[in-house]
Amino acid sequence: MSHLEPLVREFGLPGLFIDVMLEALGLPLPGETLIIVASGLAALGQMNIMAVALTAFAAAVVGDNIGYLIGRKLGRPLIVRHGSRFGITHDRLAAAEDLIQKRGPIVVAFARFFVLLRQLNGIAAGCAGMHWLRFLAANMVGAAMWVGLWSSLAYHFGKDTSILPRIWHQLSAIAMIAVPAIILVLAIAALLFWWRRRSR
Rank of each mutant, 00 (worst) to 15 (best):
Leu7Lys: 03
Val8Leu: 12
Val8Arg: 04
Val8Asn: 05
Arg9Cys: 02
Glu10Thr: 11
Phe11Tyr: 15
Phe11His: 14
Leu13Ala: 09
Pro14Gln: 03
Gly15Pro: 07
Gly15Asp: 07
Ile18Pro: 07
Ile18Gln: 08
Ile18Ser: 14
Asp19His: 04
Val20Gln: 03
Met21Ala: 15
Leu22Arg: 05
Leu22Val: 11
Leu22His: 09
Glu23Cys: 02
Ala24Ser: 15
Leu25Asn: 05
Leu25Ser: 06
Leu25Ala: 08
Leu25Met: 15
Pro28Tyr: 12
Pro28Gly: 13
Pro28Phe: 10
Leu29Gly: 13
Leu29Gln: 14
Leu29Lys: 14
Thr33Trp: 09
Thr33Gln: 13
Thr33Ala: 15
Leu34Met: 12
Leu34Asn: 01
Ile35Phe: 07
Ile36Pro: 00
Ile36Trp: 02
Val37Cys: 04
Val37Glu: 03
Gly40Cys: 06
Leu41Arg: 02
Leu41Ser: 03
Leu41Gly: 03
Ala42Leu: 04
Ala42Tyr: 00
Ala43Pro: 03
Ala43Cys: 01
Leu44Phe: 00
Leu44Trp: 00
Leu44Val: 02
Gly45Glu: 09
Gly45Ala: 09
Gly45Ser: 06
Gln46Phe: 11
Gln46Tyr: 10
Gln46Val: 11
Met47Tyr: 08
Met47Asp: 02
Met47Pro: 02
Met47Thr: 04
Met47Glu: 05
Asn48His: 14
Asn48Ser: 13
Ile49Trp: 01
Met50Glu: 01
Ala51Asp: 05
Ala51Cys: 06
Ala51Thr: 08
